[in-house]
């Protein structure tokens, strides 16, 4: 039940998090420590609360009506639900990549430039940010010669990498991935996975996935959720090879056959 600290420095520290949608108690007393510069996977059957939990980390749940949250979420040792915190600043520091690629209906360049421009970077800075972000997003080689074409003409996988690059351009510390590959083909998926492995050197990554192989392939730590409870959390190898809790074992073996 309780989160373990595994040596590395902790980036996100959650204590006793409860969440309600109206009368529906969707998350029960979640406590977890997510280490810096690592990939943490959240797995579990649909409706288990893993995506809801992810959205607590950059307060996207604020947008949901009748959503009520209790407990403590600290990122970089600051309580993100305290009154002094500006949600807008928080989301700048904690970026998010969504299930379906959602580029804006603009050119590739404008998609990347969107965040930095609004956050007040100069034109020269933005040009170098665009290249850096696209390179880090493993997309530069494919689009360098057509930055002014519409982002909507890219393939699904490219669009998703563009969305990742767009998030990188804002220079976050944490990146949340909400099932980023569920709408993609296997080849695009493996590219994104490689990219995530690369990104963890500089960023702290939390990824929700319904694909257990994916969690096993790319994550350092894995958390298993079931009906709003955090059942088990530990090193990915340990969770998949030697789960301590019965439900975890059932879930993992059930899928692996």
């Amino acid at each position: 039940m309780s989160g373990q600290n595994n040596g590395k420095q902790t980036e996100i520290e959650v204590r006793g998090l409860n969440l309600w949608y109206g009368n529906n108690h969707a998350l029960h007393n979640i406590s977890i420590d997510i280490p810096k510069n690592s990939v943490t996977a959240l797995i579990g059957p649909s409706g288990c609360g893993k995506s809801t939990f992810l959205r607590c980390l950059n307060r996207m749940n604020d947008l949901v009506k009748n959503c009520r949250i209790e407990g403590n979420v600290r990122i970089d040792d600051k309580d993100i639900y305290s009154k002094e915190v500006d949600v807008v600043d928080l989301r700048k520091r904690v970026g998010m990549v969504f299930q379906k690629p959602n580029p804006f209906p603009m050119s590739i360049r404008d998609n990347i430039a969107y965040g930095p421009k609004i956050h007040g970077f100069s034109k020269n800075e933005i040009d170098s940010i665009i290249e850096d972000a696209l390179r880090s997003g493993a997309l530069w080689d494919e689009v360098a010669d057509r930055l002014s074409t519409s982002a909507l003409n890219l393939s699904g996988g490219q669009q998703q990498r563009l969305c990742i690059a767009r998030t990188l351009a804002v220079k976050p510390e944490v990146i949340l991935f909400d099932e980023p590959c569920s709408a993609l083909d296997p080849i695009s998926t493996s590219k994104i996975e490689e990219l995530i492995m690369e990104l963890k050197k500089k960023y702290t990554i939390v990824i929700v996935t319904h694909n257990m192989q994916q969690a096993a392939r790319i994550s350092d730590n894995t958390a298993f959720f079931l009906t709003g409870d955090l059942i088990e959390y530990g090193k990915t190898d340990q969770i998949f090879e030697n789960p301590k809790m019965k439900p975890t074992e059932d879930y993992i073996t059930g899928r692996f056959g």
Partner: peptide
């Protein structure tokens, strides 16, 4: 589409 709004808000806008 609602996704545009989410994408932008998630960038700290």
């Amino acid at each position: 589409p609602e996704e545009y709004r989410y994408a932008s808000l998630a960038l700290g806008v």
